[in-house]
Nucleic acid binder design. Structure first.
Length: 417
RNA sequence: CGGGGUGUGGCGCAGUUGGUAGCGCGCAGCGUUCGGGACGCUGAGGCCGGAGGUUCGAGUCCUCUCACCCCGACCA
């Protein structure tokens, strides 16, 4: 985002609220990225939304490149739809939020969209010519978690990217599944956590032997996984058996136990949704067959939390360039007219060059300004002051490096390009 | 859902054997500062989570309740 800090509605805080223990929530609240409404319910403030939108844009780009098509489902869901797959009762699904219409009709608030998507596609899939295809959305999920925790990493309301694939056969499904897992690898690379993110064998539920989770190593995670660094794969503790190790092709002594957070998952649904919901197609041979489905999720806000946990230091947030709320944090020291003029001009020039700039034009002390720049965590800090102007220069500092250096103002645009 | 903990100005905290709420940050005004969360002076801001009870008197004691955090269980 491009903004003068004097106009930004949010402000930084020196102290984190006492009821937040998670590092990600403490820093994001102090820096003004999120606002906590209640346990597990967080609002995204302008800076936080800027980051979230960048994460979403990267995910969207990769989904689009796979030829998937974006749409938007609804949060209100019908009881009878979920009864068809026996997932309406609280015994089957304990995270339901439920409510009633004025006429007492029961409705559920979306904790997933698998059933809804499957049923909706009955309108559009009837022939083998309609397949394969896939659709996805970024939509709110509402889950009545018994215990929200870890800041924005486990919440009761969150945006999820959920994609659903529809194929004619298991073989066709497998091709898409592989493409999707490759896309996930690219996504987490682009988000800056690829190095610590492992495709992980996990429980597949009733319909498949395994599913795959994408797990990022972090102490803030909830899962225990066993990683194989060489092969860049892992096994979730929940399915860690000799048999599984043999299937995956690894030996116990090659594996390292770590804590990790699940940032994405991919599921082979098979025909477990299409059969009960009667999503069928007529094949070339004239036979009616159920569609083979897959579902693929990523929680952008949880990813954001994981990135904070992985990158932040004792001074505050540190954002990878791809998802930072801005490219440059421009600090103006003092209110000398020449300094103001030079900083204002640099702000405009950077914007014209396509850079997103947080411009600290506030009448604050030096210490406060630098501390805020460190806390907010934009990758590049430029400082304009009387001292730098004497050399027709600005000072350049990278958030993830300790040293600073002087640079001619006339060179800034080309150097930062 | 079990176990543990915490609720006092926006945020962080103190508050003694019960006696009528205070500090720091932040905020407003004025002045001095201005390369690492500056300083002085002045000022605004609180039915002490809520309800009930004990008492002449409750932030403080008792009961109930709500919220939040942590550990565990759960997480299709």
């Amino acid at each position: 985002m491009n903004i003068r800090l004097s106009k930004l509605v949010t402000k930084t805080k020196k102290d984190a609220p006492r009821d937040e223990a998670a590092k990600n929530a403490q820093l994001l609240i102090r820096a003004g990225f999120i606002h906590k409404d209640s346990a597990g319910v967080y609002a995204m403030l302008p800076l936080g939304l800027a980051v979230l939108n960048k994460i979403i844009a990267i995910i969207r780009d990769e989904m689009d490149q796979l030829g998937s098509q974006e749409l938007l489902m609804t949060s209100l869901q019908r009881r009878e739809l979920w009864e068809k797959t026996d997932r309406w009762s609280d015994e089957q699904v304990d995270v339901w939020f439920k409510s009633k219409l004025k006429n007492d009709t029961e409705v559920g608030l979306a904790w997933s969209h698998e059933e809804q998507m499957t049923e909706m596609m009955r309108n559009f899939v009837s022939s083998y010519r309609d397949l394969p295809c896939s659709i996805y959305q970024f939509q709110n999920k509402l889950r009545n978690e018994t215990r929200a925790k870890s800041g924005i990493m486990r919440t009761r309301e969150f945006i999820m990217k959920d994609l659903y694939s529809f194929a004619r056969s298991d073989a066709e499904h497998d091709v898409f599944y592989k493409d999707m897992s490759d896309a996930y690898v690219r996504i987490f690379d682009r988000l800056g956590i690829g190095e610590w993110t492992y495709m992980t064998w996990a429980s597949g539920g009733a319909f498949a032997e395994f599913s795959h989770e994408f797990q990022t190593i972090t102490d803030a995670g909830e899962d225990i996984i066993y990683i194989h660094k060489g092969k860049k794969i892992a096994i979730n503790e929940e399915v860690m058996t000799d048999e599984v190790m043999a299937t995956v092709g690894v030996k116990r002594e090659e594996l390292e136990q770590v804590k990790a957070a699940e940032v994405g998952n991919i599921f082979n649904l098979g025909t477990t949704k299409s059969v009960p919901l009667e999503l069928n197609f007529t094949d070339e041979d004239g036979k009616v067959k159920p569609v083979v489905m897959g579902s693929y999720g990523i929680g952008p806000a949880r990813v954001m939390g994981v990135i904070v946990e992985r990158y932040a230091d004792e001074k505050g947030l540190v954002w990878p360039a791809n998802i930072a709320p801005a490219d440059v944090h421009l600090v103006r020291l003092g209110d000398d007219p020449a300094v103001v003029k030079a900083a204002d001009k640099l702000f405009e020039d950077l914007k014209s060059a396509g850079k997103d700039v947080l411009y600290d034009d506030r009448d604050e002390s030096v210490g406060r300004k630098f501390a805020d720049a460190d806390l907010i965590g934009v990758p590049v800090r430029l400082t304009v002051s009387k001292r730098t102007l004497e050399q027709e220069s600005v000072e350049l500092k990278h958030r993830n490096q300790a040293d600073e250096k002087m640079m001619k103002i006339s060179d800034v645009i080309t150097v930062l390009k």
